[in-house]
């Protein structure tokens, strides 16, 4: 059962990283405009001419 000593902390660390990533995305305002984000992905004005 010693494998648990690795696997349990590993599972926890991975989960914790996910949690931190979520909190980071929340704090940087990525959930402020969900409808806009959904449409922005379709606009291709980041290609080619940038003026």
């Amino acid at each position: 059962m010693t494998v648990l000593l690795f696997l349990v902390p590993l599972a926890l660390i991975l989960g914790f990283v996910g949690l931190l990533a979520f909190l980071w995305s929340l704090n940087t305002g990525q959930y402020d405009d969900l409808d806009g984000a959904a449409s922005r992905v379709l606009s291709d004005d980041d290609l080619g001419e940038s003026a």
């Binding site: 402020d32 405009d33 969900l34 409808d35 806009g36 449409s39 922005r40 606009s43 004005d45 003026a51």
Partner: peptide, 23 residues
Amino acid sequence: IGEIESALRGLPGLPHARVNYTN
């Protein structure tokens, strides 16, 4: 969104213009 933001992007002295489509 794109129309408004690209119209404002060309203005001098304005580094940040963002439309919130939800609100």
